[in-house]
Design a binder for these strands. Structure first.
Length: 112
DNA sequence: AAGGTGACAGTTT
DNA sequence: TAAACTGCCACCT
């Protein structure tokens, strides 16, 4: 498949809009897309994010608790944490410190 | 064609 | 208060 469904494309677009040093949650993206129940679909979409061009900053997308649930899907399991730390964020035991502080809500920031 | 899985989230016990 | 279960919808076998 050359392209992905619009839902996936929209997910990637939103993720690419996340500012450097900020993070968001799957549910927030799903909510922005209007599918509050589609949080799992967002995560599934991210599963194919690695083959998207330009690369989608999937490392900025965490779960509701701020856990790096998807780090296992990266080329290197520490890649996600390294990238987050590279952006000035702090990760402790698979969890982002002050997740709420760095949280980036598309519905709020994009002022839908 | 049908069933099972999954980078989540909300509700209930 | 913390832990566990169910609900959801698209993709894969």
């Amino acid at each position: 498949m050359v392209i992905q469904k619009d839902f996936f494309k929209d997910v990637y677009d939103v993720v690419r809009l996340i500012p450097k040093g900020r993070v968001t949650s799957y549910g927030a993206i799903a909510n922005y897309l209007g599918d509050k129940r589609g949080a799992r679909m967002v995560g599934y979409a991210m599963n194919a994010a690695h083959q998207q061009i330009p690369a989608v900053p999937a490392h900025r997308v965490l779960n509701r608790a701020g856990l790096l649930t998807g780090k296992h899907h990266f080329a290197h399991q520490n890649e996600m944490q390294e990238l987050l730390e590279s952006e000035g964020l702090v990760v402790n035991n698979e969890q982002l410190v002050d997740f709420n502080l760095y949280f980036w809500d598309p519905n709020q920031e994009l002022n839908l």
